[in-house]
Measured scan of single mutants.
Amino acid sequence: RPMNAFMVWARIHRPALAKANPAANNAEISVQLGLEWNKLSEEQKKPYYDEAQKIKE
């Protein structure tokens, strides 16, 4: 299954978030990633939607 825009973004940002929160488990990191993603504007998300579309094609 191809990655969606959030997954493209999260793949880039997960390592830094995990390093900054070494005690957090994957579920907690995923929740935090979701919160951070939701704070982004549509303009900030656009490159990730574009990349996800390329992956689908």
Rank of each mutant, 00 (worst) to 15 (best):
N21W: 13
Y49R: 10
M7H: 09
D50H: 09
P22Y: 02
A5F: 03
L33S: 00
P22T: 03
H13C: 08
W9Y: 15
F6W: 03
I55R: 07
H13F: 12
K56M: 15
K39Q: 07
N25S: 15
P2V: 14
Q32K: 12
I55T: 08
A18S: 10
K19N: 07
L33N: 00
R1T: 12
K45W: 02
N25C: 06
L17D: 02
E36S: 05
Q32G: 03
E43H: 09
N26Q: 12
S41I: 02
I55E: 07
V8D: 04
Q44M: 08
K54G: 06
A23G: 13
K54T: 07
I55M: 11
I12F: 05
L35D: 06
P2H: 14
M7A: 09
R11Y: 11
F6I: 01
I55L: 12
D50S: 06
V31G: 03
A20V: 05
L33G: 00
W9P: 01
A23T: 13
N26M: 11
E42M: 12
E42C: 14
K19E: 08
Q53M: 11
R14C: 14
V31Y: 14
K39D: 04
R11W: 09
W37C: 00
A16M: 13
A23I: 07
M3P: 09
P22F: 03
K46C: 05
P47G: 03
K56A: 13
K56F: 13
M3E: 09
S30G: 08
N38D: 10
N4P: 03
W37F: 03
A24G: 03
H13Y: 09
K39L: 10
I55Y: 10
E51S: 06
K46F: 04
A10Y: 06
W9V: 01
N25M: 04
K54F: 06
A18N: 05
A10F: 06
E43R: 10
N21Y: 13
R11M: 12
I29Q: 02
G34V: 15
L17E: 01
K19H: 08
A5Y: 01
L33D: 00
R11S: 13
A16D: 07
A5W: 02
N26P: 12
G34C: 15
R1E: 14
Y48N: 05
W37I: 00
P22E: 03
P15N: 08
V8W: 06
L33E: 01
P47A: 05
N26E: 15
H13I: 08
A18R: 14
M7N: 09
E42N: 10
P15W: 09
E28C: 06
K56H: 11
N4C: 15
L17H: 03
P2M: 14
K45S: 01
A20G: 05
W37R: 00
H13M: 14
L33Y: 00
M3N: 10
A5T: 01
I12R: 07
I55P: 04
N25D: 09
L40A: 01
I29L: 11
M3G: 05
F6T: 00
K39S: 07
I55C: 09
